[in-house]
Simulated scan of single mutants.
Amino acid sequence: MDLDTDALNRLMSSAYDRRSTDPAPDRTHLDAFRRKEFSEADLAETFHENTKYTEHTDRSDQSTMSHFVHDETMQYAVSKAPPEYEGRERIDLPAPSETFDVDLSEAVRRRRTVRSYSGDGLSLDRLSTLLYYSCGATGRISAADGVENLGRAYPSGGGLYPVEIYFAVLNGGDDLDEGLYYYVPDDHALRVLERGDDEFADEVAALFATGGLLDPTDAAVAFALTGAFWRSKAKYGPRGYRFALQESGHVVQNVQLVATAMGLASAPFAAARENEVNDFLGVDGVDEAAIYTGFVGVPDARRADHFPEGGSRR
C-alpha cells in the first residue's frame, strides 16, 4: 500500500503547527531506525533502543524469566543473592520511629534539593528511621512453597533488588562513628566496611566535583547506590540494566521524602567521579558499580532554601 503523503501532511499540520512533511517522508529511513541499524548513534541512543520491550525481547526473555517465576531453586537463590559482607562488624539498628515531623502530603510539598548543611551528625536512631522508610524491608512476600522474600519500601523489577546501599558517615555522633557502611535491609542492620580517621571526610569529599555548590564535609552522610547488574540481567537480559537505574531513582526519591519528613536536608548529586567511588567502595565497577550518589544532613539554620517558599526550587 502506497503512503498517502497528502493525508499525512494534513494530519501533521492539524496536530502540529508548521510540521507538514516536505519533502515526503522516506519510509526506508524509518524502517532502518526501527531495526536499530545505527551507523553513528551515540551509546545512550543505542542503550535506549536495545533495552526496549518488544515482541522480540519478550520472546527471548521468556526462557530465562520462566525459571525465576516457576523454579523453586532459583527463587531460593534469589532470596540469598544480596551480599551481607559476612565477617565484617555488624551493628543492629534500633527500631525506627513511627512518627515524623510532617505528614506525607507536606513532605511532598516541601521536598527540595538542599546543599547547605550545619556540620552536625545523625544519631543511630535517626539513621535507623531514615534507612528503614527509604529502603528497608517492610514485609514478607511468599515466592514459593517454603520460600519467602522480603519486600522493601520501593519497587524492584522481579523483586530482584539489584541496587545496593552504601553510605559514608562524614559527621558522627555519640553512637555513630565516621566511616563507610553497608546497609542490610533484610536485617535492618549495618556492616562496617571502614572506620574513618581524621582525613576520612576530606577523602570522601574528593570523590565529588562540587564546583562550590556544596561542602560535603558539612553533610551528615554521603550515600552511594550501586547496581549489581547481573542480578537483574540474569532474568531480563540487557533490559535488566534499565531496571537497576529505575530502581535507584525510586530509592533516592524515598530518601528525599523521608529526610524532609524528619526535618533533614538532602541532595542527589550526579557529579561523582564514578571510578574513584567504585574504588572507595571496593566494588569492581563492572558487575557492581556506582549509579547514584548524594548527601543527607542537618539543614543549615542560616539558610531558608529547605522551605518551599524560598531558595532552590529544584
Rank of each mutant, 00 (worst) to 15 (best):
E106W: 06
T99F: 05
E49A: 11
S60A: 11
T99E: 09
R115G: 02
R110M: 09
V169C: 01
Y117T: 03
D61T: 12
E49V: 08
R111K: 03
D174N: 07
L127S: 13
E72Q: 08
E89N: 06
N50I: 00
F68Q: 03
S128H: 08
L127H: 10
R111H: 01
D103E: 14
V102F: 11
E106Y: 03
T73A: 10
P96W: 00
M65Q: 13
Y181W: 08
Y182K: 04
P83A: 03
T64M: 14
V163M: 08
Y154L: 11
H70C: 02
R112S: 01
D92F: 09
P155W: 00
T113Y: 08
E49N: 07
P155G: 13
P82T: 10
L150C: 09
G146Q: 07
A189Y: 00
A137R: 12
H188Q: 04
L180N: 14
A81V: 07
Y182R: 07
G139E: 14
E148D: 10
Y132K: 04
H67F: 15
R126L: 12
V78C: 12
S142K: 11
R59Q: 08
A137K: 08
E98I: 15
R152E: 03
L170D: 02
Y132A: 00
P94K: 00
G173L: 00
T64R: 15
G157M: 14
Q75R: 12
N149V: 15
T99S: 11
D187K: 04
P94R: 02
A95D: 15
L130F: 06
Y181P: 13
P155H: 07
E72M: 06
G172Q: 06
R126D: 14
R152W: 08
G121I: 04
V169N: 12
